Amino acid sequence: MTAISEAITKIKKAENDADQLIEDSKIKSSEIIEESKIKSTERVEAAKVSGYEEAKDIIFNAEAKAKKEAMSITAKAEEDVEKIKSKSMANIDEAASLIVKNIL
């Protein structure tokens, strides 16, 4: 009878150990899941920051390029205006002469 009692006690202890192991596993898996969620959130935030910084750099570079292009276009336009102005001024003397000749 002692052997049966010892067997029942061992079975009961094994059941308790199994229940405790299951409970410990549930707690551990919850901790792992929570840690994974935290790490995932951190990585998403890091990716957002990285993406934002990269976008800022792209925009800054695009603006710098556009400003440089605009300055180049403005300089070219000013140069063209000066050429037209010079040509016009050269013709003023001739036009004035013609007007004076026609009036007199």
Rank of each mutant, 00 (worst) to 15 (best):
93 D>G: 03
19 D>N: 14
15 E>I: 09
8 I>E: 10
24 D>S: 05
76 K>I: 14
67 K>L: 05
22 I>E: 15
87 K>G: 10
36 S>P: 00
25 S>F: 07
77 A>C: 10
20 Q>H: 14
21 L>R: 03
88 S>M: 06
70 A>N: 08
29 S>I: 10
99 I>W: 08
35 E>T: 00
35 E>D: 12
34 E>Q: 02
85 K>H: 09
67 K>Y: 03
94 E>P: 08
19 D>C: 11
9 T>S: 15
26 K>T: 15
26 K>M: 14
31 E>C: 00
18 A>D: 13
9 T>K: 13
97 S>D: 07
69 E>V: 12
54 E>R: 04
12 K>R: 06
81 V>T: 00
6 E>Q: 05
6 E>F: 06
5 S>A: 05
61 N>M: 06
17 D>I: 06
23 E>D: 13
8 I>S: 12
48 K>P: 02
14 A>P: 09
77 A>P: 10
6 E>L: 09
78 E>Q: 00
12 K>A: 02
22 I>L: 15
26 K>G: 08
25 S>D: 03
104 L>R: 14
18 A>S: 14
24 D>L: 01
15 E>W: 03
1 M>A: 14
49 V>S: 10
24 D>V: 02
45 E>N: 05
24 D>R: 02
96 A>S: 12
38 I>G: 04
55 A>H: 11
101 K>W: 03
74 T>R: 07
58 I>V: 13
73 I>N: 08
62 A>R: 09
83 K>M: 07
89 M>P: 01
50 S>G: 04
60 F>Q: 01
29 S>E: 11
